[in-house]
Write a protein that binds this DNA or RNA. Sequence first.
DNA 1: ATCTATACTTTTTAGTTCTAGGTATATATT
DNA 2: AATATATACCTAGAACTAAAAAGTATAGAT
Lengths: 112, 112
Amino acid sequence: MGQTNPPFMSGVPELLLLRLLEQREMYGYELVKAIKLVTGEAISLGEGVIYPVLHSLERGGALKARRKKVDGRTRVYYSLNAKGRTRLERLQGEWVRVQSGVSAALEAPANA
Amino acid sequence: MGQTNPPFMSGVPELLLLRLLEQREMYGYELVKAIKLVTGEAISLGEGVIYPVLHSLERGGALKARRKKVDGRTRVYYSLNAKGRTRLERLQGEWVRVQSGVSAALEAPANA
DNA sequence: ATCTATACTTTTTAGTTCTAGGTATATATT
DNA sequence: AATATATACCTAGAACTAAAAAGTATAGAT
């Protein structure tokens, strides 16, 4: 008892973050802009979504953080480590599964 | 104030229900099985998800309910009305938008 | 007699995401 | 000089969904 699964469609913000960080290290504010960009404006996640996810991924050992001073401002750059790559693969697999399922439902005339 | 948007990935259970009911009238228990079937087991929504959604859609005027007695058991058949068809179109459009956005993010090498 | 499948329902809990605020520095504008 | 905008971080609280769990009841199979 007490063992609950996360909502079946969740984890997309996380998936997007991990996918971007797989390509190169980035900082939070940069990720906010990047997500809007790569999704063609389709998805827009505010800082209030991004930062908490970054922190929880770091706590969970999926991300490594590195502070860097640039132009007097401090940036926190995040990069994937092994655990993060595993997690990315898992989330990506789940997404493809769900996405395929929904597509099937939408396309199927579903009759003889 | 007080005006909040729904989570950007939500509404998939609703979308699936509406899509199935667009094809023919069905009852709750039937929908539970049908969703598993048409999504190729990718998505499995329990009765605790289906019934509340059906009720709220009915209250909102998107669905019409019709009770029917079959073999001593009572079934509540639901069918789409105009409002439901509009809602289906909107949700489907949203889904396609988000789905495309995520796909773009997953596929993009995103560099020069 | 018991178990499984059908059929509906509601309550509680868990979890994510959204909004809205807050701090602070640098640069551009008026 | 003052103000506005962009950068960059952070968090608390609210809103909302969906999951789990349990409950009622009938029919049919073992």
